[in-house]
Design a protein around this nucleic acid. Structure first.
Lengths: 127, 127
DNA sequence: CAAACCTTGACAGAGCCGTGGTAAGGTTCC
DNA sequence: GGAACCTTACCACGGCTCTGTCAAGGTTTG
């Protein structure tokens, strides 16, 4: 019986029960449930909750930030497109004529977005 | 003279001038400046601004989300720790006794946070 | 079975985010 | 040199995030 109920978990982790429910809603820490529906926080969940707090304090993040990171990690299309966009940031290479560069950029993003679209439809189209 | 000034760039990109300044503030699109301080949007910046809009619409993101992704990409310590935290999420492996698993988890996070600290101090301590 | 706990759902407020506007002043260029 | 543009720096406001609290009802356990 080393699983804590929500109020106990709140006390040991430093979060409030309300926040524990919110954190679960964001998909960050999702404890298993008892047969009656009670959340059961085991050592793993408690550890995650403590390190989560450290993470937020240390880097001044919000729960939403970590939630977004989680989403990026799970959604291949999202991650690919965002990373593609960010990678295109560096200054224009001087050795490539501006026109060609633009064309290359456009092509690249079209490819990325097209790929994302393909995955979307692959996932959603179920006739 | 194929560099547009902020109002022209706003018109062609669909953003408002106010938003272009905000986007720059977030570090997402930082156009070079004229000698007098005017922002100069070249083809590359315009392309980035258009794809940024697409990106936000397509995945229902906020500018803050992309800003956070950018921060993660540039800050090694941040990326390492966040990814480490997220990777620890999967369910407890059944074949590892709970106590050992917890210990392993703690060690892992301590290592990650310690590494982050080391990088911080390496960067900030300049006696 | 009853006390003490848990559940979901709703409302509520403080604070931040995205956005617009405006003012005071500098730059460009005809 | 002056019209038209740009700069930064503020104030403002609707909406969303985070957090608390309460209500109505189900679960656990002595």
């Amino acid at each position: 019986m080393d699983a804590l109920t929500i109020n106990e978990a709140a006390e040991t982790s430093g979060w409030t029960p309300r926040m524990l429910r919110y954190i679960e809603e964001l998909g960050l820490v999702e404890p298993p449930r008892s047969s009656g529906g009670y959340r059961l926080y085991g050592p793993g969940e408690l550890q995650r909750l403590r390190t989560l707090r450290e993470l937020l304090d240390r880097f001044d993040l919000g729960l939403g930030d970590v939630g977004f990171a989680r989403r990026m990690q799970r959604d291949d299309a999202l991650r690919t497109v965002v990373e593609g966009w960010l990678e295109a940031e560096p200054a224009r290479p001087e050795h490539v004529p501006a026109d060609d560069w633009l064309e290359w950029e456009q092509d690249k993003h079209e490819r990325l977005l097209a790929e994302a679209a393909r995955r979307d439809t692959t996932l959603t189209e179920t006739p």
